[in-house]
Design a protein around this nucleic acid. Structure first.
Ligand SMILES: [Mn+2]
Ligand SMILES: [Mn+2]
Ligand SMILES: [Zn+2]
Ligand SMILES: [Zn+2]
Lengths: 131, 131
DNA sequence: TGCGCCCATGATAGTGGTTTTCATCTAGGG
DNA sequence: CCCTAGATGAAAACCACTATCATGGGCGCA
């Protein structure tokens, strides 16, 4: 029996979580940190990174690598497995569910003798607002 | 009229290219550099990075981001657009072609009003040899 | 074969995102 | 309140990768 692992309620964690609720786009840790400082929140960059990591580990936020290679985070509507169409300019995203692609990935991998299968499927483009 | 842009034949470039011909797996620039040094090749890490970049720009090698986020390179059989099933342990890869996924990505993005569409689709797992 | 131009090389330093360290702070159970 | 394990954050380390720039060496030409 593993103990419940408290995880304390701090104003820093609340600030990050609240901001994620307000944002619709994928944002980097540094952007989130800047935005919080702009709002007058006292929070360190380290804590932002740590909090996002924790939220990601708990499946509360989605993480993906932007085209530039940096990690960007977003609180999605769906808590189930899904993918995204992401704007390369502003980070705006649409959640997409594609059972057909899921089964395709699984089948292809098994056919080649692979196990412990996972996959990355992301579509990038420029959203209507950014055009 | 742009000049043909020579691109000189050096032993360093030959060494990288030859090694890529011999390798079946996706490898990082650092791994390729180490392997070349092990073989007694006199080559700098900078040159390995530059050469791989040049080969990638010319479409001669495929690049993708490993699970750890670093760029890994491989000379593929097919020169046409394709994706991979990659072993997370050893980098072994199978090339896969999935027209159905290509059109699906295009349609989904258009449906949401995105333009200048691109996508990343990679399947990771553990290959038979690594199990 | 010998110049000489100019691209190629590579040691070194720099960049930028992310993680580690560790002294200090604080949430929250008793 | 008190105490303490967990949380914070400034500073430094880390790490993959890129930029610099002095030196080296393809290769076109005589
Ligand atoms: Mn999926
Ligand atoms: Mn494709
Ligand atoms: Zn946009
Ligand atoms: Zn393997």
């Amino acid at each position: 029996m593993t103990a419940p692992r408290a995880l304390r309620a701090t104003k820093q964690r609340a600030a990050v979580s609240d901001l994620l609720d307000r944002l619709a786009d994928f944002r980097s840790a540094q952007e989130i940190h800047e935005e919080l400082r702009r709002q007058g929140e006292g929070i360190g960059l380290t804590t932002v990174y740590r909090t996002l990591q924790t939220l990601a580990d708990g499946g509360e936020v989605d993480v993906l690598r932007s085209a530039g290679g940096e990690a960007v985070y977003r609180r999605c509507e769906s808590s189930a497995h899904h993918h995204h169409v992401v704007c390369r300019r502003c980070g705006a995203a649409e959640e997409i569910d594609a059972p057909m692609v899921e089964s395709w990935a699984q089948e292809v991998a098994e056919k080649h003798g692979f196990s412990e299968i996972s996959h990355t499927v992301e579509i990038f483009g420029v959203c209507r607002a950014c055009t």
